[in-house]
């Protein structure tokens, strides 16, 4: 298995080995010695780590997180990464995200539409190391392509594709291959895996910008 980034460890909680990061607890997750368990069933990125995907993350990276929702996953990311920009479109989850951000001085919450990067390009810096994307909208590949402008040349896109957001009637396999195909117009896919064990009808993708 590839190494976990610095700041992410497998720790024992009540005798069970679980992924964990160090930080203030957010959603009632188990804690031990300042570490908080990271539940892969509630986090697509957590599932990608749990399944041993090679995310290329080492810790301390600058991150653009698209689809931060109520901050569950992004709180763990901010625990081990550097400056983390969290974009979320809906006001209600953003209310919770703000609570998470208040206790993390390098987490920057933004109420913005990930399909319109120009509305936050004056805030998010260029050459971020990682884009994490988990948006439940149609056109997920398109969102990744539009946000490529933020990513450093050797940066990584960590993408969770939700089949049902693209088309509820099509089979997940055909949705995934369509997303992969359109993603390949701007990215080179390094690895992809179904997240089935933790998230139904989701595909995890690790990619880097095409040269």
């Amino acid at each position: 298995m590839p190494e976990l980034p610095a700041g992410v460890e497998r720790r024992s909680f009540d005798g069970v080995e679980r992924l964990a990061t160090r930080g203030e607890p957010v959603y009632g997750e188990p804690t031990a010695d300042g570490w908080r368990a990271w539940n892969p069933d509630r986090s697509k990125l957590g599932a990608m780590f749990e399944l041993g995907m090679d995310t290329g993350l080492e810790g301390g990276e600058t991150v653009l997180y698209l689809g931060a929702a109520n901050g569950t996953t992004v709180s763990h990311v901010a625990d081990f990464a550097g400056p983390t920009y969290a974009v979320e479109f809906s006001p209600r989850p953003t209310r919770d995200l703000l609570e998470v951000a208040e206790r993390r001085s390098r987490l920057f919450p933004l109420l913005k539409d990930a399909r319109k990067p120009e509305t936050y390009a004056h805030i998010v810096e260029e050459d971020v190391d990682v884009i994490v994307q988990d948006v439940a909208t149609r056109g997920q590949a398109d969102v990744a392509l539009r946000n490529r402008r933020f990513l450093a040349e050797d940066g990584r896109l960590l993408l969770a594709v939700k089949a049902r957001s693209e088309d509820v009637t099509a089979s997940p396999d055909s949705v995934f291959s369509a997303v992969r195909e359109s993603l390949e117009s701007g990215y080179e896919i390094l690895e992809s895996r179904r997240l089935e064990a933790h998230h139904m009808d989701h595909l995890g993708i690790v990619a880097r910008p095409q040269k």
Partner: peptide
């Protein structure tokens, strides 16, 4: 820089959330 950015994004986003949530249909 990041301290100021944190302050500014948290307040601006809080104001934006409140404005959107106060909208009448909401």
């Amino acid at each position: 820089y990041y301290d100021r950015l944190h302050e500014a994004t948290v307040s601006a986003t809080r104001a934006a959330v409140q404005a959107r949530e106060r909208a009448d249909d909401n």
